[in-house]
Design a protein around this nucleic acid. Structure first.
Lengths: 322, 322
DNA sequence: CTGTTAGCGCATTCAT
DNA sequence: ATGAATGCGCTAACAG
């Protein structure tokens, strides 16, 4: 090392000083620090990682960096991690289910832990993967074997449905997302309960997607059901629908009420503003980091956190038309 | 190594096989590959990084992961990098100008290159930083000494202003973003040209911010100017303004025309849809990666790419009221 | 074509 | 309290 001779000490002493080891003479430590400052020296994170066995970095795998929900999770996680001196390696599977496994394993090898965000892969594959990539925390997907941070989608959707029911709506339609996804399954279960509790309600289920265009494309199908209330899979779908209905001269909420899901930042600014369920995605990310620190420390306890979203009532829902 | 003895060869041979070195006997290579597969062995990226001097990772520093523009840049960059087998380390400075420098240096040390996305730091600081962190590419911020990928904000804003002028608007207001930012400076220069070309236009400049709330907060000030056309700093500001005006019963575009900037995904779905300038942020990211590969290869040429945004005419602009 | 040796830059024994 | 070795896991240069 260069600073070593510059300060007239050995490599070990430099290392000790840089790591704040107290068993070094104050005077010597000062000399070393000065030398280091003068030469602008900082220990190579790479070499440290190799010898220490930790990289101070965690990996996050998301299905789509373009999705506001994952963005928010990433943001919350990233900031929380940064506050603890950790870095974040990001991987976007571009909704390619087949890529998830590879990305997870590969990024995990360069990091100390892995956050799997709403992985799309089938349950068996996920179950087989988890042991290979620990410490791992799951976001918005539950499975034994790893701490999970998830929003209770079912509860919230049920609440939205009840809200519409309270407003007098009796003919509803649910715009489903990706058919065999975990999040959709939770919602379907909640709707089944809702149906059971309210036999007087006619609830149609319509295939759809997870983005704007899916919502817009569903407009005619929705109108064909003559429903007065629509539960969209998420805010994006709701906004697309909103837009398509506006084009057709359908008034919201006078003619039809619409609810979204997620309360993305834009939901407040649509016309009318969207009634939706507030899933604090950034919180989700921060909690995920919390779980990760625990897992990293071995204080695992496989704690699972479930956040109950708030229902946010805004202008897109109103009394059912007479 | 374990696979070494398992295959009955030396460490070097294993290394050679794993790296596809053709100077190995086919039979031996087969044995090694089998052993590796059986033991599930993969070379440690960490150790490779240390000895090879490259990490196959680049760092991206953004001012705010919550900003749709940066999200899109990140997404485009991330996918392009992944296609080339590179990973992305992300850092969010949370708009803390002071943090940018530290984040840049720190993340750069764990990676092969750095992408600085619209850094807020003052010019001298940036100029001093660049040599320390090369290879580096700048996105949406120009400065000699590093390849730059930037959208031509000035040109596009000018085009939007001309569009309003063509529609008969003679009293305009510009909602400025962060006062002393590079992107705002470019826009101000373009507006100065516009003013010079159209002495008949009264163009007021109003301080504002870069987000929804700033736009909403500016509503009354905008109305006070009695302007018939508004050039918002970006789509977020425009949407906030749109929302606040709707609350006040002001009709868009009948009473007042509004333009945004960036063409974020949501701009198509406001009511009315937003006339804006299309800055293909994901493209920006992909180009940035392209520039990075060049820089990584030493084929630098410090090439600067400037993308000219398209003007997207939608419903939020119309003829000036009589 | 393959095995042996050295070293990437550091933290950490072990001696002193 | 400090310096001299040892090794983290791998690749490259050097023999054979």
């Amino acid at each position: 090392m260069d600073v070593a001779k510059h300060a007239g000490v050995s490599l070990s002493t430099v290392s000790r000083v840089m790591n704040g080891n107290p068993t070094v003479d104050a005077a010597l430590a000062g000399r070393v620090r000065d030398a280091a400052a003068e030469l602008g020296y900082t220990a190579s994170p790479l070499a440290r990682s190799l010898v220490l066995g930790r990289t101070q970095t965690v990996a996050v795998v998301v299905p789509d960096l373009g999705n506001p929900t994952f963005q928010a999770v990433l943001r919350g996680l990233s900031r929380a991690a940064a506050a603890d001196g950790y870095h974040v390696l990001i991987a976007d599977s571009a909704e390619q289910v087949g890529e998830e496994r590879v990305l997870a394993i590969e990024t995990r090898r360069r990091t100390d832990g892995l956050v799997l965000c709403a992985p799309r892969m089938p349950e068996e594959e996920l179950a087989a993967l988890l042991p290979q990539v620990g410490p791992v925390v799951l976001v918005n997907r539950t499975l034994d074997g790893a701490p999970t941070i998830a929003a209770e989608y079912g509860t919230a959707l049920r609440a939205l449905a009840e809200h519409l029911h309270d407003l007098g709506h009796r003919r509803l339609v649910y715009l489903a997302g990706v058919a065999r996804s975990a999040s959709n399954a939770a919602r379907l279960a909640a709707l089944a309960e809702f149906r059971a509790a309210h036999p007087d309600v006619e609830l149609t289920e319509l295939a759809s997607g997870v983005d704007f265009d899916s919502g817009a494309a569903a407009a005619d199908a929705v109108l064909a059901t003559r429903a007065t209330g629509v539960l969209a899979f998420n805010d994006l779908v709701a906004m697309g629908l909103l837009s398509a209905l506006a084009d057709r001269g359908v008034r919201v909420p006078d003619d039809i009420s619409i609810t979204g899901f997620d309360d993305i930042p834009f939901a407040r600014y649509t016309s009318p503003p969207l009634t939706t369920a507030s899933v604090p995605a950034a919180d989700l990310g921060a909690r995920a980091w919390q779980a990760m620190t625990a897992a990293l420390a071995g204080t695992d306890a496989a704690s699972s956190v479930r956040l109950t979203p708030d229902v946010v009532l805004r202008g897109s829902t109103g009394p059912a038309p007479a």
